[in-house]
Design a protein around this nucleic acid. Structure first.
Lengths: 227, 227
DNA sequence: GCGAATCCTGACGTTTCCTTAACGCCCTCG
DNA sequence: CGAGGGCGTTAAGGAAACGTCAGGATTCGC
């Protein structure tokens, strides 16, 4: 259910975390280098990233910046370094928390729970986004027409409608949409968006050639019109 | 601007934090007991709460629960207690971060910045610029007439209205507008502005030939009149 | 392995937008 | 009183962005 990405080059720690987190019901994905970590963040879409700063291939702060360039996923930093400057650099690069090794497993779990809690403000947010012709249920990951008939969406179609729904009413640029759905290395492939927007309109709009909810703002991006 | 509530019963710490945070541009509100802290959280609506666990009148975890009952404001806990169990209890009660005394001021400031950064998107404060006949929504990149009717703007039109709205009420020179919209190598092409200002007036002004919001200041530039 | 669903890619016609030029108005100044 | 500059208005051509369709590649489940 909740996926956690652990980026660390020390096998014992990786194994210990993997076992402990799995036992708590988390799905665990691991990476041993910064490059792998960045790739896994894009492909696995974890709810939280646990990042060791002492990686072999690149500086930990650079990994944080690489993730923060396109994602707001919570990042918990693990590090053996006690120096305050190191902590400040990591936090200012965009990390959410900083835990010094050796750390207590219960403390890490508690900080993890705090991070997950923040990233899923479940009680706060209304998980239903209503438009003129359909309803997006972000919690159930499904879209219903007004007569409660469920619409079958492919994974890519869902990611697009989810991204638009999370910014309901606001304009979403093509680049942001591509980053969010295809990953940070995409940004100019607007033809993908044209294809999938057409598919979504065919499934969700009464008159796909005259959309009322999935609007194109030429030259700027797309917008999901609510209410 | 950004208000921070510091809850601590030790006067020296309170004073030190107050001075340091004020110097960084934060507005600081203080409370010496848990009861005061809860009241101040409700009345002052701080962006972040810094909470010492060792308060005289009530247990720190109870203060956290009291705040979490109705607010999601980030809470950073300060404590002299190193025990892991204490940290876990505070974090699970709803705290966002836990800093052990004695702490480095730079580290606390960095954790504070991280907390403020997170709380901003949750702030949901929509920056709206209202004029006599239309409303500019900078977050949604959208302009509505007073009857909430959406106005379709082209990218260039939007950039102009956005630039004017960010300097609402103030005069914006032609050169500044050209720099902002067309790039730094433009500065004399005032004919572009005349064309686009005419289009904007046609879309936004009730009587385009007698503008009341999009005013020309002859020989100087343009001005968006608010309220 | 096989079939179905999904995704990527290229081509083409259409829509929309940006730029540029031309013209008229008003005010200022010689 | 006429010339000239600044500004508003309109229209048209070309460029860019968009919608649509179809075929091939890839993935996934059985």
């Amino acid at each position: 259910m909740t996926t956690i990405l652990v980026v660390d080059d020390e096998a014992p720690i990786l194994r210990a975390l993997s076992i402990t987190l799995s036992a708590r019901g988390y799905t665990v994905v691991t990476a041993a280098t910064g490059t792998e970590g960045l790739a896994a963040t894009a492909s696995e879409r974890p709810a939280v990233v646990v990042l060791d700063l002492g990686l072999p291939d690149m500086d930990g702060v650079e990994v944080i910046r690489g993730i923060r360039g396109w994602s707001t996923v919570p990042i918990i930093v693990l590090s053996a370094r006690e120096q305050e400057q190191q902590k400040v650099a990591a936090l200012d690069a965009g990390a959410d928390d900083y835990v010094t090794k050796p750390f207590g497993m219960h403390e890490l779990l508690a900080r993890l729970r705090a991070a997950v809690r923040r990233s899923v403000p479940a009680g706060e947010q209304e998980p239903l986004v209503r438009t003129a012709n359909f309803v997006v249920d972000l919690a159930a990951k499904q879209v219903n027409l007004l007569d409660d008939q469920r619409v079958r969406l492919t994974p890519t179609e869902w990611q697009i409608i989810e991204t638009l729904a999370r910014h309901a009413g606001r304009l979403v640029t093509a680049k942001h949409l591509l980053h969010e759905v295809w990953g940070p290395s995409y940004g100019t492939e607007t033809n993908y968006l044209r294809v999938y927007m057409a598919q979504l309109r065919r499934k969700l709009e009464p008159d796909p050639s005259r959309p009322v909810s999935l609007l194109t703002e030429p030259g700027m991006g797309y917008r999901l019109v609510v209410e």
